[in-house]
Simulated assay, not measured.
Amino acid sequence: MPKRAPDPAQVRADLLAVADWVRDPEGHERPARPLLAAAVRSSLRTLEHTAPGHSVEVRVPPFGAVQCVEGPRHTRGTPPNVVETDAATWLGLALGVLTWDAAADRVSASGHRATEISRWLPVVDVHRTCENG
């Protein structure tokens, strides 16, 4: 488990700062790299905290990677269960703009446990956030 839980308000702010672009990349300018990095990293840390463990590695290059999901701990070499995707796809999943199934062609998921991370998505549901203010 991470040393300290991410601040939910900060995670929400990081993700909402890029949400318009994630929802409509053609209609909005790509966020600055520091905003993308903050959104990816805080959402990955949240996943790491809400799905503690070391059996699945989630990678969003070049911004970060975490290990999560209870199960056998991976210690050397390439992990047997890996999820890797680009920042835009990860942020779509983290915000609930994309479902796991809809993103399947943009996510590399290897290993029989890799898809288990979908249970903890979205990190912040942008639809619920918008409806609730």
Rank of each mutant, 00 (worst) to 15 (best):
2 P>H: 04
2 P>C: 13
3 K>H: 14
3 K>S: 13
6 P>S: 00
9 A>L: 09
13 A>F: 01
14 D>E: 10
14 D>H: 06
16 L>Q: 08
18 V>N: 06
22 V>M: 01
24 D>I: 06
24 D>L: 07
25 P>Q: 03
25 P>S: 05
29 E>M: 10
29 E>I: 06
30 R>G: 10
32 A>S: 10
32 A>C: 01
33 R>H: 11
37 A>Y: 05
38 A>G: 15
40 V>R: 07
40 V>C: 14
41 R>P: 13
41 R>H: 10
42 S>N: 07
43 S>F: 00
48 E>L: 06
48 E>F: 06
51 A>P: 02
53 G>Q: 06
54 H>T: 08
54 H>N: 13
55 S>A: 14
56 V>H: 03
57 E>F: 04
58 V>N: 02
62 P>C: 13
63 F>I: 15
63 F>R: 04
63 F>Q: 07
63 F>E: 15
63 F>H: 15
64 G>E: 01
65 A>L: 13
68 C>R: 11
68 C>P: 02
68 C>E: 05
70 E>C: 09
73 R>E: 15
73 R>C: 14
74 H>E: 10
75 T>E: 13
77 G>H: 00
78 T>Y: 03
79 P>Y: 02
80 P>A: 13
81 N>V: 09
83 V>N: 01
83 V>M: 00
84 E>F: 04
84 E>R: 09
85 T>R: 00
88 A>Q: 12
88 A>R: 08
90 W>L: 12
94 A>P: 11
95 L>E: 02
96 G>R: 11
97 V>C: 02
98 L>Q: 11
100 W>C: 04
100 W>R: 07
103 A>S: 05
103 A>Q: 02
104 A>Y: 00
104 A>N: 05
104 A>G: 09
105 D>K: 04
107 V>T: 10
109 A>D: 00
110 S>M: 07
112 H>N: 12
115 T>D: 12
118 S>P: 10
120 W>I: 07
121 L>K: 04
123 V>Y: 04
123 V>T: 12
126 V>T: 05
126 V>L: 09
127 H>M: 08
127 H>I: 13
132 N>S: 13
132 N>G: 11
